[in-house]
Design a protein around this nucleic acid. Structure first.
Length: 300
DNA sequence: ACCCAGGATGTAA
DNA sequence: TTACATCATGGG
């Protein structure tokens, strides 16, 4: 086993690992204490995942966001962590350049060190298909079940880590089987989308080559992917930092704080709130707002 | 019992 | 195009 440290001093704006991995962006990690997405941070606990067939563990034992990252893997995990946790982002500049909006400034100040993630496109697509009308804790349960049931297993020290299944592994799962795993009405969506990718009919990563709104539209060809889920895929796996998913929390925020941005339909409302949240990094801003509102940290 | 959660789909107007 | 019923599940 290889091990190493990534000094926080090398990360512009630092990182808060707990906020980054338990803010409803990624459902592909598990926590060694079993308390992922249950509300309480545990700096001593390891976060584990499998990326490109490589098991990786990371934690931030000395607090955040100025604490170093400690990692374990079967190989050098630094390149993987740089990508998954977007360690190259100049978080200080992104926060400083955010619009002068009271709620947004409050969110950035309250959750210092939270970074966007960049997860694999297929796993992200299935994760957010599962996200429909679900709380983040249950989304994590569903995705964990898929990994445990259909994914490859990897050993890392004493721990067994389950990879999220490839399209080939997931496509044969029947709708009935997925319903037994408590996916509910999302079961046929997951099965059909996995099949679309497995057969080569389409792959979500293809959207990377398109302009933003064309990319969002392109992703809606997958069964169970509407405009909101498409925005999540673009933001959390394809590097479209301007994407602003209009979920129930952000819609409430629009009604309360930005009522002039409500244009009655998704595309135009999305464009209006995107401009209000700063354009290029509007998705970063949205993720802070989402986390701020969802965790009930708003000062009113 | 009722409401809600990172919504999408099919159908009708 | 927009409006609306329908779809599962678990927690508060």
């Amino acid at each position: 086993m290889e091990r190493g440290t990534i000094p926080a001093s090398g990360l512009v704006g630092g990182i808060d690992l707990y906020r980054t991995l338990e803010s409803g962006q990624s459902y592909l990690w598990s926590r060694s204490d079993g308390d992922m997405y249950t509300g309480e941070p545990n700096p001593k606990a390891w976060y584990r995942t499998v990326v490109d067939g490589v098991p990786v563990a990371v934690r931030q034992p000395d607090g955040a966001p100025d604490g170093d990252l400690e990692w374990r893997s079967t190989t050098d995990a630094v390149p993987y962590l740089r990508r998954l946790l977007r360690l190259e982002d100049d978080l200080a500049a992104i926060a400083a350049d955010a619009p002068e909006d009271p709620l947004l400034r409050e969110a950035y100040a309250a959750h210092d060190g939270m970074r966007l993630v960049e997860d694999p496109p297929f796993a992200t697509t299935i994760s957010f298909i599962c996200s429909a009308q679900m709380r983040v804790g249950r989304i994590h349960d569903m995705v964990s079940t898929l990994a445990r049931t259909y994914g490859d297993t990897h050993e890392l020290g004493d721990a067994t880590v389950h990879a999220f299944p490839s399209p080939d592994r997931l496509a044969p799962a029947s709708e009935a089987e997925l319903r037994e795993h408590r996916l509910g009405y999302r079961a046929p969506y997951v099965q059909r989308t996995a099949e679309m990718v497995a057969t080569g009919e389409a792959h979500p990563a293809e959207a990377r080559a398109l302009e933003y709104e064309a990319a969002r539209s392109h992703l809606t060809q997958f069964v169970g992917v509407g405009e909101k889920v498409a925005d999540c895929i673009l933001l959390f796996s394809l590097g479209f930092d301007q994407a602003v998913p209009l979920d129930t929390w952000i819609r409430t925020a629009i009604a309360t704080y930005y009522p002039d941005c409500d244009r009655g339909n998704y595309a135009e409302t999305s464009e209006a709130i995107r401009d209000r949240l700063g354009g290029r990094y509007a998705g970063y801003a949205q993720t802070y707002l989402f986390h701020h509102l969802r965790t009930g940290a708003v000062n009113d």
